[in-house]
């Protein structure tokens, strides 16, 4: 049956429209959950607020379980779903850069745009920085980044196959890790907030 767009069940226009509606919903919920507040994101790194970690971890697991079960019962064909090839070295470097951006700026790409729209000046500057980064990367791609981009090539892999275990087992392991993490971060959060009086 699905995915709707790659199998041709819906056209370009409807695809864009659905994306637009989901995008608005996503932005609205980011704002409603307070993610446009920089302290919310930075809190993960300082240990006084783990909501962001909880949300993205549980979202990833919900999506994994949902996609897996839908694939199993024939509602969606996972082979048709796009995921990019893995290049682990540039991914690792990019991950570090992004993490520093998170700590310093207090936004992720999604929340920065939401926050900019709500009128936060720091978010507008953050978005401007992101644009400068994108343009800068594009113009210096050939001399500086082209080689790095292709290093650590692993092809189209997912972790479960790479580790040689079934998808279901991997999901179960990740969920148990998530449950333990949720418990651990609750303890950490309590200790950190007890020591200092952080205000959101």
């Amino acid at each position: 049956m699905g995915p709707l767009f790659p199998t041709g069940a819906i056209g370009d226009e409807l695809n864009m429209l659905i994306g637009f509606i989901i995008g608005i919903g996503f932005g609205f919920l980011l704002e409603a959950a307070g993610f446009t507040n920089t302290r919310k994101l930075a809190g993960v790194f300082y240990g006084y607020d783990f909501v962001v970690l909880k949300v993205f971890f549980s979202a990833a697991i919900t999506a994994a379980i949902g996609l897996f079960l839908m694939n199993h019962y024939g509602l969606i064909d996972l082979n048709e779903i796009y995921y990019p090839k893995t290049f682990w070295i540039p991914t690792l470097i990019g991950g570090f850069i992004m993490a520093f951006g998170f700590i310093i700026g207090g936004f992720c790409p999604g929340t920065s745009i939401c926050a900019a729209v709500t009128g936060k000046i720091d978010a507008m500057i953050f978005v401007l920085g992101a644009i400068i980064g994108i343009v800068g990367y594009a113009f210096t791609y050939e001399p500086l980044w082209e080689h790095l981009r292709g290093t650590g090539k692993m092809g189209k892999v997912d972790i479960a196959h790479w580790m040689g275990i079934s998808d279901g087992t991997f999901i179960l392991i990740m969920t148990i890790i998530a449950a333990i993490t949720f418990f651990a971060i609750t303890v950490i959060q309590k200790r950190v907030t007890a020591k200092r009086d952080y205000q959101l």
Partner: peptide
């Protein structure tokens, strides 16, 4: 929430252990 996720994960785990796709 964690309980619901664990139930889902166990479900996913069980359906892979008899890994014949339903189709």
């Amino acid at each position: 929430y964690v309980g619901i996720m664990l139930v889902g994960a166990f479900w996913a785990f069980i359906v892979t252990s008899n890994s014949e796709p339903i189709s």
